[in-house]
Design a protein around this nucleic acid. Structure first.
Lengths: 269, 269
DNA sequence: GTCTATACCCCGATAGAC
DNA sequence: GTCTATCGGGGTATAGAC
């Protein structure tokens, strides 16, 4: 299916990649709203009309960049929670190498060798740190998918599956914890009973409804932390950002029901 | 100081307001990155060069819009936590009327008549709901200040004080709770001891350091919830958004140490 | 699939008359 | 303070030759 058939196809794939690379470069300089086919073409030494053979419009190019970004951050999230290698087969190694840009923070490594009780929590923190690492490494692509919507651009349906990968990874961490009876049940407002059922049915059929609600909230809150850091709201406010982020997502893990080390529970109240 | 001196000044003020209004209208249509003085002038029946008498550049106009937006959302936040009227003086009434667009959610009204124990939590929820209400009513101005940074635009120092109003309001809720001994101490990672001290010294000198850290995290997480709702990530995911938001910020209140009703604590574990 | 040429739009900013 | 005119850029998209 993805097999390269001949020189023609190969060339097309390479040019397409070159166009997207240059477009990403321009994204960083001028933002998504001003992404222009002409400028991309100019920089590649092509003439603008030639680009239309690869992308039928500016919006299609934008869509390709958005999908790529969602796939990249999703891959970073997934590889951060990859099971600790069934064997050291080349397969799992490749999958780990798949997102070379992801940040491997010290905390992540430190947390990984914890006891079985803290394992799920460590995976959650590793996941969140990987997403943040990708975001810090690719701020403009992050802004493209998690920042303000691009005016006049309506995301086509192609984007919804890639967009769900990070959330799905979060759900799978909770699911694993639940399977191993390592999940505490978060409280749930009465007003959300129906919504919680619906959410669980639709996104996490094997999880308790209250966990589904807590997960969605935590999901948005992780990106709240990252967006504030990336968009400048933490400028001259938060300095030790690695530690701050790790503590914050650790507390979010509490909210989802992922157990923390005893020291945390002890300090409560 | 703000007294109108004559017809000339009055006219200038009115034209300035008209320009900003039209600019806000265009913000909604095309986004901040494409805000153009020419288009504003065209729509107002002026010629583009005339605008330069009011705003020396496009960026100055953008700055004015940003400051206005921060002031508006700050005012909404502040009036949501206004003390329950020392008397029914016209002053406090005016201050409450100052942000007519803020959402007064049912939850907010319901929570307000709780016991003294839940009072601080209710104020927190009211504050967050007011911010969300303003955001839903002014999505493009919200995107302007809390969305992706405008490419090529560097925020001048004039924006930092207005930008801090919502955060300051949150701090004041926690401060009031602390004064009345209604604040539980959140846990704090060892790695954050210094940072926590610094944050408390700088932004909330009368609050315990661990609360300062928790507040900053909660601050960013509230906007994470709002941004995900506004920027479309909750599309076909979260349906009952009022209730969802209220539950989520209620749980954030727990994280900051603002006491919740007994039912919540009971359900924990 | 790439090229030239073209139609028809947009912008920020300034000079200088009134 | 508003106007006309202008400089010097930018853009999307298509037609039609090669």
């Amino acid at each position: 299916m993805t097999k390269i058939r001949g020189a023609r196809e190969r060339a097309r794939i390479e040019v397409t990649a070159a166009i997207k690379d240059e477009a990403r470069r321009q994204l960083a300089a001028d933002g998504a709203a001003k992404l222009s086919l002409r400028a991309v073409a100019r920089e590649l030494g092509m003439v603008s009309s030639a680009l239309y053979r690869y992308f039928p419009s500016r919006d299609e190019l934008l869509t390709a960049l958005i999908v790529d970004a969602y796939e990249a951050v999703g891959a970073a999230a997934e590889s951060a929670i990859a099971p600790p290698a069934t064997s050291d087969s080349s397969h799992s190694f490749v999958s780990l190498q798949h997102a070379p840009d992801q940040a491997t923070t010290p905390d992540q490594a430190a947390a990984t060798d914890g006891t079985a009780t803290t394992d799920h929590r460590a995976r959650w923190i590793a996941l969140c740190s990987a997403v943040r690492g990708w975001a810090l490494a690719h701020p403009h692509e992050y802004a493209l998918i998690y920042g303000s919507p691009v005016p006049g651009y309506a995301a086509p349906h192609d984007t919804v599956v890639p967009a769900s990968r990070v959330g799905a990874a979060m759900i799978s961490v909770a699911r694993d914890a639940h399977r191993m009876r390592g999940l505490a049940l978060p409280p749930l407002d009465d007003a959300l009973h129906d919504e919680a059922r619906r959410l669980a049915d639709r996104f996490a059929p094997d999880l308790p409804p209250s966990v589904a609600v807590a997960l969605i909230a935590a999901w948005s809150q992780v990106f709240g932390l990252i967006s504030f850091e990336l968009f400048g709201q933490f400028h001259r406010v938060v300095e030790e950002r690695d530690a701050f982020f790790t503590q914050a997502v650790g507390r979010l893990a509490d909210g989802v029901g992922l157990p923390g080390p005893p020291s945390v529970r002890e300090a409560q109240r």
